[in-house]
């Protein structure tokens, strides 16, 4: 799986993907685009445009009603069992609702993505400390996540997403609850992951993080592609 991630130049391929919810609500309609390995890609659009649904389809949290989705050369909807698990270990996701374990500490929440990959405890501890330093959360190491502010929870969710050095990082609204200084810390962290070869897909409302960037931006409107910039 890791070999495929490195050797294939296309990380995400979507061809005529649609997603409909019962009774007859179209969340996405005929979406086709590709994202190259190592690219940073912005996904924008109003609330309800389909950004979160698109991210959920890429990480196989949901299945498309029709169309093909390939991640690292694998049709993600045909992967099952351990194959799917191993691919997911290479995908880091920071969810809009964070999905943090509210009765566990910050460190335990971040460590969970590395524990499933059976990494050594010492390496896990070191990585957790590094990430907390980078996200200005050093003093929150042993704090239960339910005691954190929304902005802090958001950064913990992001730290968990990048902790296992994934080859693909999906981030849903990473700066929604953050001030300008912290937003910069978060974007620096994502840029460092990109520099180390990761592909980053960011769904956001925050124009400040994509307007001045050279990366491609795809705008969704009512579940369809409205525009897709070429990037630098």
């Amino acid at each position: 799986m890791a070999e495929n991630m490195n050797s294939d130049n296309t990380m995400i391929e979507m061809i005529k993907v649609s997603r409909t919810y019962k009774p007859n609500i179209t969340a996405l309609s005929d979406i086709s685009f590709s994202i190259k390995t190592g690219e940073m890609f912005f996904l924008i659009g109003r609330s309800g445009a389909g950004k979160t649904t698109l991210l959920k389809l890429i990480c196989n949290m949901e299945v498309p009603t029709k169309g093909l989705i390939e991640v690292a050369g694998h049709n993600i909807n045909q992967l099952k069992g351990n194959d799917l698990a191993h691919l997911r270990q290479k995908i880091g996701v920071a969810y809009q609702d964070f999905k943090l374990l509210s009765d566990r500490t910050v460190a335990e929440n971040i460590a969970i993505s590395m524990e499933v990959s059976c990494k050594k405890p010492r390496a896990i501890k070191q990585q957790v400390r590094d990430l907390l330093d980078q996200l200005l959360l050093t003093d929150k190491h042993n704090t239960i996540t339910s005691e954190l502010s929304r902005g802090e929870q958001q950064r913990v969710a992001l730290a968990r997403a990048v902790a296992n050095s994934p080859r693909l990082i999906l981030v849903d609204e990473p700066t929604g609850n953050l001030d300008a200084a912290t937003t910069k810390q978060v974007m620096d962290l994502l840029n460092r992951s990109k520099q180390s070869g990761a592909t980053i897909v960011i769904a956001t409302h925050d124009a400040s993080i994509y307007q001045q960037s050279k990366h491609r931006v795809m705008e969704l409107q009512n579940g369809a592609i409205h525009s897709l910039t070429k990037g630098a």
Binding site: C59, M61, G81, N82, A85, H86, L87, R88, Q89, K90, I91, V93, K99, L101, I112, S113, V116, S117, R160, N164
Partner: peptide, 16 residues
């Protein structure tokens, strides 16, 4: 349940 759901999403294998 929440934790098991998260474990699946971060790539825990069935045996794990």
């Amino acid at each position: 349940r929440d934790e098991l759901e998260l474990l699946k999403l971060v790539g825990a294998t069935n045996s794990y």
